[in-house]
Design a protein around this nucleic acid. Sequence first.
DNA 1: TCCATCTGTAACCAAAGCAGTTGCAGTGCA
DNA 2: TGCACTGCAACTGCTTTGGTTACAGATGGA
Lengths: 165, 165
Amino acid sequence: MISSRVAVAVHVLAYMAWKRSEAQTSERIASSVNTNPVVVRRIMGALRNAGMVTVQPGVGGGATLARDPAGISLLDVYRAVEDGDELFSLHPSEPSRNCNVGGHIRDVLRPIFCRAHRAMEGVLAEVSIADVGQQVMEQARSAGGCCADTVSEVVEGLARERARA
Amino acid sequence: MISSRVAVAVHVLAYMAWKRSEAQTSERIASSVNTNPVVVRRIMGALRNAGMVTVQPGVGGGATLARDPAGISLLDVYRAVEDGDELFSLHPSEPSRNCNVGGHIRDVLRPIFCRAHRAMEGVLAEVSIADVGQQVMEQARSAGGCCADTVSEVVEGLARERARA
DNA sequence: TCCATCTGTAACCAAAGCAGTTGCAGTGCA
DNA sequence: TGCACTGCAACTGCTTTGGTTACAGATGGA
């Protein structure tokens, strides 16, 4: 299983695309993702290294999108937060070289697994953060939650105040 | 990362396709894979449940292919040994429903990740155990190791005798 | 019938990855 | 200076993985 970092990173970026006017703090984003702010900051670090966001410390700081959300594909996100360039593990220990199968199976499997990986990445490459944001908004509209923005702000703000007390 | 069980299972099946005339013991296969016989038996159990092999206990027993290797795809193997029908993890905890993004991001991501998964599986579906076996033999031939069969048998047999002593 | 040779499976171990959490140094604005 | 942020190290608990030992059950030959 590919870790939930990809899903969370897409969530983070879609959230920032939605609120593009203002910088978002890790605490604010974490309350939307429902996790710890440090988890968000860890992922944000990877996105920052990939040049997708800029982060400002200090009072009034937070993260903002550094690029057009239509120009950030889910493949970019996947590669930013999921390290390692292989999807399939090969044998943990090198197979026997004294066997025709053991001696060559890895060289045969490697390109096949690579093609499978590339096919998966191809689908991710076709979807952008802007697409995700738009689909989210469409779902929200059809669910009757259109423009729940300010309401949710209030609710979450109250929840944060309560958590602090 | 997808576990090495897929690679090992393909190895096991390719090995059995190669030596299709005789039943293979888990110890014999494990010496080709370079792992513990129990690891092979665990994977063999999954392949048996999927109807790809038949296993015979007792003296002279072992495992044999139950189907034509040309009719076993790597997708069959993948599904037999890799449990769970999802490739991507979604959020560990349910995101905030008080947020437009949090309330719908999972419904948006699910079909995208599913398409990516299917694309990967599509590549695996196009390759059969017979294909893998043939490619292994081609590599062995071009590497000058053609027909090293009996030689490797002798070498590994000696290694096994040594291990017993 | 007895025994050698297989499988099947449970139990345990060490290592690794993951998400969550705490704590603290650094940074920047008012 | 004080407050509100980020960055990062360190630790926890949990799960998965591959490897290993041990043992019960099946099987066929002497």
